[in-house]
Design a protein around this nucleic acid. Sequence first.
DNA 1: TTAAAAAATATTGTACACAATATTTTTTAA
DNA 2: TTAAAAAATATTGTGTACAATATTTTTTAA
Lengths: 204, 204
Amino acid sequence: MKKKDMHAYTYAYEKIRDQILSGEIEPHIKLTEEMLAEKFGISRTPIRSAIAKLEQEGMIRNKRIFIPTANDIRHIFQVRILIEGYAANYCSKFISEDALNRLKKCVEVGFDGTLEEVMEANHEFHQIIIQETRNPLMISIIDKMQSIIYLFRKTVVGQKRPHLIDEHANIYKAIENHDDQLAQQLMVEHLEKDLEFSLSRINN
Amino acid sequence: MKKKDMHAYTYAYEKIRDQILSGEIEPHIKLTEEMLAEKFGISRTPIRSAIAKLEQEGMIRNKRIFIPTANDIRHIFQVRILIEGYAANYCSKFISEDALNRLKKCVEVGFDGTLEEVMEANHEFHQIIIQETRNPLMISIIDKMQSIIYLFRKTVVGQKRPHLIDEHANIYKAIENHDDQLAQQLMVEHLEKDLEFSLSRINN
DNA sequence: TTAAAAAATATTGTACACAATATTTTTTAA
DNA sequence: TTAAAAAATATTGTGTACAATATTTTTTAA
């Protein structure tokens, strides 16, 4: 529901984004301004802004939901591995008590939560580590890629990878022990496995 | 001059961008749509698109030219060091013959070119290294930051740093020798010095 | 005077009409 | 039939008017 103090383009942006992520808007169909304007009961102008933003962020390409190729996935992960590896290292030295607790919670939920909760906790695990860099640029770079990866996961993979939680647990331990080298190495390996898993789902 | 087959918003984007970088539009003044529309003889609609893009890219913030704080600069460099360090490493292993030659040329121009040429060559030196990763994501991340740093340089620094060319020469040599570790280390140190130099210009 | 309220002004946001392009379909000529 | 050309259609781009907000200035009451 549109909040009364919300601009139409913000509303449109969130709506389109959510509907893409939830699958309500299916891939491959062309996102025309008029069709979306009709759908949300507003004019084309705010829709244009929303689409432009989504295109900038990489979720839409050529007016269609962006479905990354194997190479796109590799490129995304190359950047992710670099930044998140660094972040894991950084965390080991500078993480706050609070963040460390939240990280621990994520691992615990990973072991005993519902599927929904586990998915959310896994996402948050990575999120916390990045946020502890307190570098807004890094955070936003990762955020944008997350959406694309999430989307890709939902549409292509739709399935959980084995050992994922154990790897999180190990990364957590390394951070807790302030072993920056190990934390970085484990994060890199973790993401490399994630990449492999993702790619294996495309090629068949 | 506006090309006839160019959309007004592309024209506006380039014009505004160029005028910001050239200093024709001064910092601190508010970039209102109407004022820019008037200036370029087009309506507000394409100006809106252009501003939105420039804001996404970080050159404009709150309708004003973005002038980064010391912390902003640190954050930008933290990402740059990470990515360009990686790129230097990567280059040492995989650079093409052609790119290596162009890199060499940049160093040479650095020693015997005019100020204008030197500036351009220095920029290109970094550009080539990033481009050799062939990762469009990395390239675009660095590109966006380049604009902001360049702008910041122009307005705040306006001055060349000593030893810069020598450092480029050393990085070049390391890449030429396929010494990936050294290339990375030298690039990191190079950028750290750049950061220090930039910061020293703010704090007085 | 000074701070809150009100009014005036400036600026941005939205809708909509029409123009310019891009895309698809149909027609035509080989 | 098939490929190029033409026409029809769909979609995006632009200008403009007006509405909604934000900002600045003026007024008012203490």
